[in-house]
């Protein structure tokens, strides 16, 4: 199961899935767990970057899903609801393990001259994402480079740009202000752009 081919279960399928779970139909729970565990593990691993912690997050997430199934209000799709739950569980584990000091992101920010003009190295070529990703290993390289961002910036970039949560949702989950999320997202994107430049220009990393 991937985020691409199953963005949301269709409404009726979702209702059936819910009903059979709530009625504790024989074998349905297992089918449900096997169906969703894969993408949930992928989400948790993107947030935590640690396989065994990600497994813990998924286990906690399933517990929360089963516990709250009756109060699931169907305003969002089942998958969206579960996605938020697994992100939350992953963040809780991340908080426990994250260290207090992190590298500065400043060296990767935009620079300006005395007139306030941007200083940007000349661009002669821009390769498109499609061209870049045709090369084997590119996606692994990109993921590795995202992992180099200072933790608090990396998390916000992952939640906003990859998990596609809104600024408000991210601020709520991280218990911080929306303004802080915006500032950090901008800095994270700037830094990632810097790190990805060689790939985008077409040279070797």
């Amino acid at each position: 199961m991937t985020i691409c081919d199953d963005p949301d279960l269709s409404a009726t399928k979702q209702e059936r899935e819910l009903a059979s779970l709530q009625n504790k139909e024989h074998g349905r729970t297992e089918q449900f767990v096997r169906h969703h565990a894969g993408w949930m593990l992928a989400v948790a691993n993107r947030v935590l970057r640690d396989r065994s912690h990600a497994e813990d997050a998924v286990q906690n997430a399933f517990a929360a899903v089963f516990k709250n199934l009756d109060s699931f209000n169907q305003k969002s799709s089942l998958k969206t609801w579960m996605h938020r739950i697994v992100v939350n569980e992953a963040l809780m584990l991340l908080r426990k393990q994250s260290s207090t000091c992190e590298d500065s992101i400043d060296p990767f920010q935009s620079i300006f001259d005395e007139n306030g003009c941007r200083i940007e190295e000349d661009w002669t070529t821009f390769r498109t994402p499609e061209t870049i990703l045709q090369q084997a290993q590119s996606s692994a390289q990109v993921i590795e480079l995202i992992g180099r961002l200072p933790e608090s910036y990396r998390v916000i970039l992952v939640l906003r740009d990859i998990e596609e949560l809104s600024t408000t949702e991210v601020a709520d989950m991280l218990e911080t202000s929306e303004a802080n999320v915006r500032v950090k997202l901008h800095r994270a994107r700037s830094a990632l752009k810097k790190l990805l430049e060689p790939l985008i220009r077409g040279g070797a990393l």
Partner: peptide, 18 residues
């Protein structure tokens, strides 16, 4: 332009890897 490409790369790479 480079910023847009890099956001797109982050998004697509995660999906491809999955």
């Amino acid at each position: 332009r480079a910023c847009r490409i890099s956001i797109e790369l982050a998004k697509t790479s995660a999906r491809e890897a999955e």
